[in-house]
Amino acid sequence: MQGYWRKNVTIMVVLLAIWAFVGLGCGVLFAKTLNQFSLGGFPLGFWFAQQGSIIVFIILILVYAILLNRLDNEYSGDAGKEELAAAAESAGGAEETEE
């Protein structure tokens, strides 16, 4: 089951990196620079802070739900069952840390 968990964590880290870049990055840290450009009638930084970031957040959760549910299906199929049995034998195996 290590494979499943590793893929799970990879997807999560990538999506969270986008989350931090758009929300905290474009919305706050780079706002002054982005505000020099404009999008329609909006200064770009302002648009990211009040519209763009929220749209990206919704898409991120959608992508996460699709990818993870697909991953779940993949691993709860036959291939997954074998790995699951193997994992059950070596329960409490190698430790992983994420923070």
Partner: peptide, 28 residues
């Protein structure tokens, strides 16, 4: 937001961005 202008965005991003954390790190 009406009173604070740009700084009011912190509520928009904070309260929706928290959902991403919730969905990816905790809920499932």
């Amino acid at each position: 937001i009406s009173t604070m202008g740009y700084a009011g965005s912190q509520y928009l991003m904070g309260w929706t961005g928290g959902y991403v954390l919730l969905a990816l790190l905790l809920a499932p």
